[in-house]
Every structure is written in C-alpha cells, then in structure tokens.
C-alpha cells in the first residue's frame, strides 16, 4: 500500500467519524482504520483496493489543488475544512467517493465491541446468554429463562 494512502487513511479518520460530536461515544484510533484496510485488502478483491487507493489519491490531488499541500500534512482545521467541501458533493459520485474514503475508518470504528455496546448492542452479554442457551437438534426445547433479568433488554419484545 502506498505510504501516502496509509497516512491519509489515518489522517481522515477523525473527520469522517465526527470524533467528539457525541460525548458518550468512544474515541477513534486512526491506526484501527489502517489495520482494517490492510485486512480488507488481503481478503477482498483487487478492484476494491484499487478504487479505495484511487479515492485517497483523489483526496490528495484535491488537497494539493486547494491548499498546495498533501492532505496528511495539513493541520486539523484545514483538513476539516477540506473534508466539509467533499461532504457537500451531491449525487452518486459524491456518495461513492465518501463510501470509499469512509470505509476503512467507519468499518473499523463501528466494528469495535465498545462502540457497539455504547450504541446498545451488548455483544459480551449476548454472547454469554447464547452460551447458556445453546440449541441441539435432538435435544429437548429450551426451558424458560431463569428470570427476565437473564436476557439483556429483557421484556422489550412486543
């Protein structure tokens, strides 16, 4: 992966995720975004990696055009200003550019267990419950839960 792409993936992370906009959401780690892109590139198809690379090169070309500097070398405010301009792009092109620029950071951040727990998807509790309530094909039907408290969000079903 090109070094400029790696640096841009990290630099763009807080601007794409809106870090700090919601105080109870955990902070983002830009390194997670880069790690995610590397994993994704290994298991995915070449074209996705290629398009993602092109998107980040386009971001830097836009940055050079607007500021005379590459995106990672800009200060936070300048990067934020530049990104806001990109977010205003309308139509399919704007969506796709945002999609490919945003994929590493957004996937990495919203994959995190702590982020999902903060949003109400309590993975550790559900996993614990699933381990207690395992199903076997030949087994008897599961009995009633020990109590409503056993189930995270218990009683919420209609």
């Amino acid at each position: 992966m090109l070094r400029i792409v790696e640096e841009s993936v990290k630099a763009v992370t807080p601007h794409l995720l809106g870090t700090g906009a919601v105080d109870w959401l955990p902070d983002a780690d830009p390194q997670d975004s880069l790690d995610f892109l590397r994993d994704w590139s290994r298991s995915g198809i070449d074209e996705f990696t290629l398009v993602t690379t092109v998107a980040f090169l386009a971001l830097n070309a836009y940055s050079l055009l607007k500021t005379g500097r590459l995106f990672p070398s800009l200060g936070f405010e300048d990067r934020e200003h530049l990104m806001k301009g990109l977010f205003r792009l309308k139509g399919a092109l704007g969506f796709l550019l945002g999609y490919f620029l945003g994929s590493p950071a957004i996937n990495a951040y919203y994959s995190r267990v702590d982020v999902q727990v903060a949003l109400g998807f309590d993975i550790p509790a559900l996993k614990e419950e699933a381990e207690r309530r395992q199903v076997t094909r030949g087994g008897e039907p599961l009995g009633p839960r020990e109590s409503d408290d056993e189930r995270p969000g218990g009683g919420e079903g209609a």
Binding site: H15, G18, A21, V22, K84, F87, Y110
Partner: peptide, 25 residues
C-alpha cells in the same frame, strides 16, 4: 440489523454521522 450493517449505507460523514448513529436505539 447491528450498527455496522446500517452505517455503511448512510450518506453522512463527520459530526452528522456520529449524531445520526447515536440514535441507533
């Protein structure tokens, strides 16, 4: 759908994305 299944289809980025996703429940 879990949060990740929603977020990639959203057109929002930055502050708007965080604020929108905070309404996930």
């Amino acid at each position: 759908t879990p949060p990740l299944g929603i977020v990639m289809g959203l057109p929002f980025k930055g502050r708007r994305l965080a604020e929108f996703m905070s309404q996930y429940p």
